[in-house]
């Protein structure tokens, strides 16, 4: 299995896309930290990038790589290797490369500029988020037959998780503003990996103070042990469940 992960990783690195991404993160993070005289502002700008760009990049990268590595997987499949191992190896390799790309790209400038714990937390959360997004994208492309449609569906999934889901929440809030929906809405938002990461970062930045009493409740919950476990657990589920479904489908998929 490690052998196969290794070959996927070599294949990904040869692809150079991941190197480009790392460079992109590096330049972005570096310029933000360099240009913004104060770090809080840099962290906020970084957060905006992370929340919108990272899910998109992670999903497209993972989806596209699935098709790019189609032949490679065919070669592997003609060898005595179980399908489960092949697809799991691909998922792990994609995750490692995305997480490393983000970790190095965002992390190196952060360390150079002596970043605080907030920025390191942000980077960590981003890495987890990118893996979850990759898992979702992999599931989407495995479900679809051909590349153009697969990548279209990946875009749609990104659109759903980063926009449509929030539109639903917003509609709920508008139509049921007379009811005490705050807790329910937080719960709902926490079911979306992008929203969950965003909220968790926001509370780390202590934006909760703006939310008055409700914010204090959120903060209390998310910074408690149960809250952290909930965040971590939910993110893990967002990685594990799509991956497991992907494996199940891929095992019985005609190639």
């Amino acid at each position: 299995m490690i052998k196969i992960i290794k070959y996927f990783l070599i294949d990904i690195i040869k692809n150079k896309v991941i190197l480009g991404l790392t460079l992109f993160f590096l330049v972005t993070s570096f310029s933000l930290l360099y240009l913004d005289e104060n770090q809080t502002k840099a962290v906020l700008s970084l957060m905006n990038i992370v929340i919108i760009v990272v899910p998109l990049i992670s999903m497209i990268f993972a989806g596209n790589y699935y098709f790019n590595a189609y032949e490679f997987k065919e070669v592997l499949l003609s060898l005595p290797v179980a399908r489960t191992r092949i697809i799991l190896s691909e998922m792990i390799a994609v995750s490692i490369s995305l997480a490393l790309s983000l970790g190095l790209g965002l992390g190196i400038p952060a360390l150079i500029f002596g970043a605080g714990s907030t920025i390191l937390y942000l980077i960590l959360i981003t890495m987890v988020l990118s893996v979850a997004c990759a898992a979702i994208a992999l599931l989407v492309v495995i479900l679809s037959r051909e590349k153009s449609r697969g990548l279209g569906l990946v875009l749609l999934a990104w659109f759903y998780f980063s926009l449509l889901y929030d539109v639903i929440i917003m509609t709920l809030l508008m139509n049921f503003s007379d009811y005490p929906l705050e807790k329910f809405v937080v719960f709902l938002a926490a079911l979306n990996p992008i929203d969950l990461c965003r909220i968790s970062m926001m509370l780390k930045l202590d934006i909760s103070a703006l939310m008055g009493y409700t914010g204090a409740l959120y903060k209390e919950f998310f910074s408690s042990l149960i809250g952290s476990a909930f965040t971590l657990g939910t993110m893990l589920l967002w990685i594990l469940i799509p991956t497991l479904i992907s494996i199940r489908i891929y095992r019985k998929k005609d190639l």
Partner: peptide, 17 residues
């Protein structure tokens, strides 16, 4: 201002748009 619960969407892509 109308409903502070909207703050849950702070810094999401939706609010930017």
């Amino acid at each position: 201002e109308q409903n502070s619960a909207f703050l849950i969407l702070l810094r999401s892509a939706l609010t930017v748009i």
